[in-house]
Design a protein around this nucleic acid. Sequence first.
DNA 1: AAATTAATCAACCGCGGTACA
DNA 2: ATGTACCGCGGTTGATTAATT
Length: 210
Amino acid sequence: MGRSPCCEKSHTNKGAWTKEEDDRLIAHIRAHGEGGWRSLPKAAGLLRCGKSCRLRWINYLRPDLKRGNFSEEEDELIIKLHSILGNKWSLIAARLPGRTDNEIKNYWNSHIKRKLLSRGLDPGSHRPLCFPHHNNTTSPSRPAPDHEFPAFQNLKTPEITDFFQQYRSESSPIVPEASDAEEHPDLNLNLCISLPSNSPPRREQSFQRP
DNA sequence: AAATTAATCAACCGCGGTACA
DNA sequence: ATGTACCGCGGTTGATTAATT
């Protein structure tokens, strides 16, 4: 048996939020604070499940959210954090004030992946692109024809196209291999020591349990 | 100008984990 | 010790908007 759905079948709205729903949610949280998501909808007079309310607040209505495009500095910080943390979007978001995990995840998938590819880096590993190859070595090998990499097909930009052309015309890798020890010489994140002060520690605190 | 394809991103879903009875 | 209600996370979807043909 699977678990029951988070929202009982009773009539709940889904999809985009209306201004009226937003106003109700904001008013309720102003009056009662965050939390109690399960019971909030009823208390606030919303025909939504608690999860939906939480998501709307955290990702869109919270007053401390930054709006607008990511800065170049934010881009670089996201890239560095991702190279260390992987897809731990909430941990990454905790290091970018005013940004949400969802926003960063979306931004990663739609922009930064492309940016890394255009630099000749694999967005997953942050290593120089290494294409599937019969010899199975870790050193970069020459790119195979595009049709062998459908995953890249929809990420093409002029920069990426340029990269492939340049890569094909060179006899040696254009991106030197980074040594593990030197990978982040300028980054001191104190990841082991501190958690961000502006948000409560979340799941990862479980790691501290004896 | 219309049709088609791609990009964006808000919102959803299922699951893992915690708190607490 | 065990069950379960709930929270938060990460992957994914799909509606809308933008770009391209």
